[in-house]
Design a binder for these strands. Sequence first.
DNA 1: GTCTATATTATGATAGAC
DNA 2: GTCTATCATAATATAGAC
Lengths: 229, 229
Amino acid sequence: MATSSTRPTSAAPPRPDRRSRRRQETIDEIIEIAQDVMAERGVNGLSLSEVARRLGVQPPALYKYFDSLAALYDELFLRGHTEHLDQVREAMRTAPPGLAAVRAGLDASARWAMGSRGVAQLAFWRPVPGFEPSPAAFVPSQEMVKVFRAGFSDAVAGGELGPGADSDEACWLLSAMLIGAISQAMANEPDLPFGEGRFTPLLATLFDTFPTIYPPPKPRRSARRPPAD
Amino acid sequence: MATSSTRPTSAAPPRPDRRSRRRQETIDEIIEIAQDVMAERGVNGLSLSEVARRLGVQPPALYKYFDSLAALYDELFLRGHTEHLDQVREAMRTAPPGLAAVRAGLDASARWAMGSRGVAQLAFWRPVPGFEPSPAAFVPSQEMVKVFRAGFSDAVAGGELGPGADSDEACWLLSAMLIGAISQAMANEPDLPFGEGRFTPLLATLFDTFPTIYPPPKPRRSARRPPAD
DNA sequence: GTCTATATTATGATAGAC
DNA sequence: GTCTATCATAATATAGAC
């Protein structure tokens, strides 16, 4: 036995963190390639073979990182929602609380979706015949509802919206607006970025109807110069 | 030359209408099966092999009716939009002109989509990687815009909406509302029919914001008892 | 962890007999 | 118009050598 170490059996893995770091890098690279493939060929155009081809590796090698194609989809779904959530959170954090924050979150949502089209389609539409995301992959998606709920709650507290807006229903409305606008944009203007074309600008118009759907109880106060109090 | 007829060449097809009628029936049957398959397995779950299997025939036989899988998709796309257009037209025709007609059309749209999910996904989202509908298949889709434009025009003329509603933009808004609501419904409540669940009812809420988006110039008159004139 | 080889299955499509 | 036979391709996934 070697004198240098406490490990009694098996070949000594030198610097296991280095190994696992390389492994993580490979996983990240696979994910990136998969995102590219989906953006180019649609969600259903993804295959392990194509990923292997672009990674410069034979398909069986991928099974060391993902158990199956479904597992890869699941990771893509999870990471997509997580990234989406992060960007929405950040946008809302840096905006004034209330309606403005919700609007900023919605805007960030749409930007993320238009910038990550393949993943967005996977996340919002579930277009892959056999694929059902694992419960764990849904966690960030559920968290998103809470984030927007909090924003609406602030808007109600600030008198920008009526009490009905502090509800799940308001969040569903918001998501329907988002998905309607980006669906149309992706189907009809697949090459235009967010903000251009006929459809993504509609999102602002739709959002501005919230005070009509949930009218605040008191007369709206102007944004500038609140009444001296 | 034969004396009986003006056909100089080729064998005479006896009763060509009967033959072509059977042919048309087969085509219709293929279409129906394809719709079923898409509803069950998603748009990308459609294959000629599966259609042949259900039709009780070998795959090569289908090529007598459709040149390729893409041609079948194209026919499905065309028929879907045509059926959709017919139902919208009929709903608008039997409703009072103006906003009520637009609302009836939107309602019919959503009902059709939720009742023909596979085709609706093909028609609204284009989720098949290589497939681009032929120009001819787009005709009913363009016609739809005209139909809704006419409805909005009536609503403007009747003082229900402001002049801005007589625009393509209003039609895009309408379609974004529709697609947002049904996208969410199909992805999250795939088994519920139109009108049930959390999402399809949102369509009415969204639609009711139109007078806010395009406010009529004069004070709104009540629906009942128009001012004596 | 990667490779080769292979099993298995499925697909779209064509040729040619009947 | 349908069949059998076949081509060509591609996919997921596993076994086992290195």
